[in-house]
Simulated scan of single mutants.
Amino acid sequence: MKTVYHSAESRGYANHGWLRSHHSFSFANYHNPERNHFGVLRVLNDDYVEGGMGFGRHPHRDMEIISIPLEGELRHGDNMGNSGIIKKGDIQVMSAGTGIMHSEENATEQPVKFLQIWIIPNKTDVTPRYDQINIEENSVKNDFQQILSPNQDDAGVWIHQDAWFNLARFDKGFSKEYKIKKEGNGVYVFVIKGKAKIGDQILDERDGLGIWDTERFLLQAEDDAEVLLMEVPMELSK
């Protein structure tokens, strides 16, 4: 098993006043040649947006874009006619494909925190699409909850890539083995809350650990923990 550890403090950071963002991988003005991506996981941004502020309408193309609110409410709008609010307990996905324009704004006067994740797709020039679902109503304790997959009929949202996302909400002391879904995939583990352990590596809040060249690994909660596991292909599509 191979691993790469990224402490929360080692991430890139941008402070625009209304927006504070931590970048696990190179993004915008943060460039780290050793942290451009983990397999097809291209962006993992931990964003904080002040009340009433947000990102105006801007374009994307040929990228799978996933947003997971952690606190507050985020207003979405796009040129496909979709508009609405996503909040904690939801997950949103967009396949940018041939091109989309969208905006993301804080829907209230209270701060909003959310994870924005970009996955490089396994096919380009697809028809753009949008989806959001509530994942809280099917939440589980002390188990892996699938929230994203390549399959339209599976639990969670789906994307154009052989990727699976799971949330793990573990009580202190609980542990469970995660089995890789597809050969050649790796998993980027990101601790949203609490403290976890994989092998000899302790992971504190907002730490990340990339894992590959293995079929399985054990995730243990050192404290009550909420952990996002992002399984992705390690080889970029040709």
Rank of each mutant, 00 (worst) to 15 (best):
Y30F: 15
E50N: 11
R35F: 13
G72T: 12
D47A: 03
A28Y: 13
G77K: 15
H58Y: 10
A28D: 14
A14S: 14
G72A: 06
A14T: 12
H60T: 00
V43S: 00
G89M: 06
S21A: 11
D90V: 00
G84E: 06
G72E: 12
R75G: 11
H16Y: 10
H58N: 08
E64Y: 07
G39W: 02
P33G: 02
E34P: 03
N79W: 07
G54E: 13
G54C: 06
I85Q: 01
N45L: 10
G89D: 04
M80G: 12
W18A: 08
M53F: 14
H31C: 03
M94D: 06
R11M: 00
G56S: 14
R75F: 15
S26E: 04
L41N: 11
G54Y: 05
I85M: 01
E50W: 01
L70V: 00
R35P: 02
G84T: 11
H60R: 00
S95V: 10
V93L: 08
V93T: 09
I86N: 02
R20V: 10
R61V: 10
M53L: 04
E64H: 02
D62Y: 02
V43C: 07
H58F: 05
V93H: 03
F55A: 01
H58V: 07
V43L: 10
N36W: 05
L19D: 02
G77S: 15
F38Q: 11
N15E: 13
D62H: 11
N32A: 01
N45F: 03
E64V: 05
N29H: 11
S67G: 02
G12S: 08
G54D: 06
N45R: 07
I66A: 06
H58S: 10
A14L: 15
D78E: 12
H31T: 09
G17S: 03
G84K: 09
L41T: 08
P33I: 09
W18H: 08
F27V: 02
G56F: 08
S24V: 03
G77F: 14
F25E: 03
L74Y: 14
M80D: 14
K87A: 13
I65S: 08
G12V: 02
I68T: 07
G54V: 06
Y30H: 12
G54W: 09
G51K: 08
M94W: 00
P33F: 00
I68W: 14
W18L: 09
P69T: 07
H22F: 14
M80T: 11
G17A: 08
N36H: 13
Y13G: 09
H76T: 09
H60S: 06
